[in-house]
């Protein structure tokens, strides 16, 4: 079956694309909310990559990467919540939730 051969590769490719998409947005976008979302999308790409790798094993689906992904999702949720609260504090202190165009050292 060609489908069985192809599908794990597709997960790997989509995981890479999600990761790079998130990395690009993290660098290019200035709004902090978009940066937080970008890190989350990068994380989703890594999770997808891990699940794709787990499906490639010879002895059936590997449960260890699945457990790692569950752990990763929970850590990502906690980190996102802390980041969002920090963003609100930045907004309250400076009036803007985005990074300035040039840093103080420029």
């Amino acid at each position: 079956m060609t489908v069985d051969v192809i599908s794990p590769q597709i997960y790997l490719l989509c995981g890479v694309l999600l990761f790079v998409l998130g990395l690009h947005a993290l660098v290019v976008r200035r709004h902090l909310l978009l940066k937080i979302l970008a890190v989350n999308i990068m994380g989703s790409g890594v999770f997808m990559l891990l699940l794709g790798v787990a499906a490639r094993g010879e002895g059936g689906i590997d449960p260890v990467p699945h457990a790692l992904v569950i752990t990763g999702i929970v850590v990502a949720v906690s980190a996102t919540a802390v980041a969002l609260v920090l963003m609100l504090k930045v907004k309250a202190a400076t009036g803007l939730a985005r990074l300035p165009l040039s840093g103080p050292e420029d």
Binding site: Q9, L12, L13, G15, V16, L49, V53, A54, R56, G57, E58, G59, G60, I61, D62, P63, V64, P65
Partner: peptide, 12 residues
């Protein structure tokens, strides 16, 4: 990623 060698993993 496409060049990853097949691994037995930890399923066994």
């Amino acid at each position: 990623v496409l060049d990853l060698p097949p691994q037995p993993g930890l399923a066994g």
